[in-house]
């Protein structure tokens, strides 16, 4: 573990921590600048944990606690799946599984002007990016990437959306590709959109059904993918592959 910061002998990095754990002692690491993320707080020289999860460290100096929960805490630059709840003159109100509804300005689309405001009915599923997440104010979303292009953002049509924990969606997005998606992708073709807020959207076209499931209609592929993902949360990589194998055998 070369990630282990040299200054702290008992490193908690990549280990489970609980509230109250003191993970770093600043007095022993003078001349260091560190950046603290979610779940950590500083009391004088001690850096202690505020929520249960795994302590993460990213070079050169960032520390944060990663946990898996049902509620999403908005964070800038996260890509998430939101559901339109209401539309106002300036904003769409979007549910992002967070403590407050998020605002999606009606102009936050590629080439958005007052003339071409999109119409979304209540319940539309959107793939969006968080641009503002400050305390006390509703988070703000956008449907463009940093350069103002639509990229992949926008409404998701058809398909099926299911809820997961934030930990599971982070696992699905991790690189290298997580085993469950890799194993599924070898045999089936499907589209997937994973929101960091614990929502996953899956879509499989009838025409895109893979070689191994010629007779299967698209809903069966979607259901299979969805269930495989949902049951993979607590499994190891090898277990995930076995589970997918078993599921695929059943539909053949």
């Amino acid at each position: 573990m070369d990630e282990r910061p040299l200054t702290s002998p008992t490193s908690f990095v990549d280990h489970i921590v609980v509230p109250g754990d003191v993970v770093l002692n600043l007095s022993s690491m003078a001349n260091h600048t560190i950046k603290l993320g979610g779940g950590l707080r500083q009391d004088c020289d001690a850096i202690s944990v505020m929520k249960a999860g795994k302590l993460r460290f990213s070079k050169p100096n960032k520390y944060w606690v990663e946990s898996s929960q049902k509620r999403y805490v908005p964070c800038v630059e996260d890509t998430i799946l939101g559901i339109v709840v209401d539309s106002k003159a300036d904003n769409f109100l979007v549910d992002i599984k967070g403590p407050a509804l998020a605002f999606l300005p009606v102009l936050a689309f590629e080439g958005g002007t007052r003339r071409n405001i999109p119409k979304f009915e209540t319940g539309t599923l959107l793939y969006v990016r968080v641009v503002k997440a400050n305390d006390g104010v509703n988070p703000e979303l956008t449907c463009t990437d940093a350069s103002g292009k639509a990229a992949e953002f926008g409404p998701l049509k058809e398909g099926y959306m299911f809820e997961s924990s934030t930990g599971l969606s982070r696992m699905l997005l991790s690189s290298p590709t997580c085993p469950v998606l890799e194993a599924l992708g070898k045999k089936l073709s499907f589209e997937i959109a994973v929101g960091l807020n614990g929502r996953v959207w899956v879509w499989a076209d009838l025409s895109s059904v893979g070689r191994f499931s010629v007779n299967a209609a698209s809903p069966s592929t979607v259901i299979l993918v969805g269930n495989a993902i949902m049951s993979s949360e607590s499994l190891s990589g090898v277990q995930q592959r076995i589970m997918v194998e078993k599921l695929l055998q059943r539909i053949q």
Partner: peptide, 9 residues
């Protein structure tokens, strides 16, 4: 709440 996609699917 539920998205339209879920209901339709």
């Amino acid at each position: 709440r539920m998205s339209v996609n879920e209901k339709k699917f």
